[in-house]
Design a protein around this nucleic acid. Structure first.
Lengths: 190, 190
DNA sequence: TTTACCATGTAAAGAGTTACATGATTCC
DNA sequence: GGAATCATGTAACTCTTTACATGGTAAA
């Protein structure tokens, strides 16, 4: 259900095409929601036939077809926004692996934790780029930024916690200690 | 795909029935993964027919049917554990709402943020109960704990960030400031 | 001219949820 | 005797992914 509202929400800032929406998901909403084109286009058709969005007339010869939020669509979006957030089931393939990590040798445990830290860092860099690109923005942007910052705060906390766990591992095993000091050296030279 | 490995991982600590597995998901792995009975039982059948788990003979008259990891199942689990973690698409209905929160009046914004903080607190309490229940545990438990703690670290970071945002809102609006000091008072009396 | 990007989809499969069914046992 | 919990599912549906198809336009 959320995808419908995600689309309505993006359309609340002005008419967009399916392609535009896909790009907005990828570029600025990826921390909160995402969808494939193959899901977006049919859902736009649904929203249109439900009267929540309407096609905007395009200049002849244009390849794009933009949709705009209707009155009814705006009301539906507003209702969803004030409703209690739907409960989320937490499902995280990394946490699941950690849950079973006692089954691996310390060296493999280390590898997985380092991979995780690397991925979190990539995510945090993405957040930073977004933050810079949207600097000095207006009021609507402020909440978008908040949304991303909440995601970044979580990612960073996880990163810090896992780094601590890595340090513990290095303290318990000579081989890992060596790998770890190599990693630190590499990191310093970036 | 992950559910199959989640089940294999839980079975790695000994034979379990479908019902046992459901309870383990709910009680100790809920921060990392979860599944309904209606998904667990058929998946167990699949794993069995793929030779990754095998039914353990039960005392006659028993209603339960336990499964144990086979050699092949153990190898499959190990391979999955050392493989790179599958990329996750981040999808969070709360962050999605925050992304669009400029569409609401400050008072409604406040309501949603407070609801979120409340939910995070419930989650953190659950983590705490688990931590206490598993105190002084053995090595395998240590990674289970770590897994939960990483989830808790993320939840707490989000809570703190959102609390800060709430304080900002209260600083910008008299009505919210009143609501907020009422909330703080209530909190203090718990 | 070929590569990248624009733009919109269809079909099929996989993952997960919801609702329901069934019957046994245990606890009050 | 009734409620909760044990225990195992089926059927239908919704949501999401994957793979593929198609053709236009812009830039190197």
């Amino acid at each position: 259900m959320s995808l419908r509202y995600a689309l309505l929400g993006l359309l609340a800032h002005g008419p967009r095409s399916g392609y535009d929406l896909k790009r907005e998901f990828d570029l600025s909403a990826a921390h909160a929601w995402n969808a494939n084109s193959s899901q977006i286009y049919p859902t736009l058709r649904e929203l249109e036939s439900d009267g929540l969005i309407a096609a905007v007339p395009q200049p002849p010869g244009s390849r794009r077809s933009e949709f705009a939020l209707t009155e009814k669509g705006g009301q539906s979006l507003h209702q969803w926004l004030v409703d209690p957030v739907e409960p989320r089931t937490r499902r995280d393939p990394f946490l699941l692996r950690v849950f079973f990590l006692d089954l691996l040798a310390p060296r493999e445990q280390y590898r997985q934790l380092v991979r995780f830290v690397d991925e979190q860092e990539r995510f945090l860099e993405m957040c930073d780029r977004y933050r810079k690109s949207a600097d000095g923005a207006d009021a609507p942007m402020r909440w978008r930024m908040t949304s991303m910052e909440v995601a970044a705060a979580a990612a960073d906390a996880q990163r810090v916690f896992v780094e601590r766990r890595i340090a513990e591992l290095a303290g318990e095993d000579q081989e890992i200690a060596a790998l770890e000091s190599a990693r630190r050296a590499l990191r310093g030279s970036d």
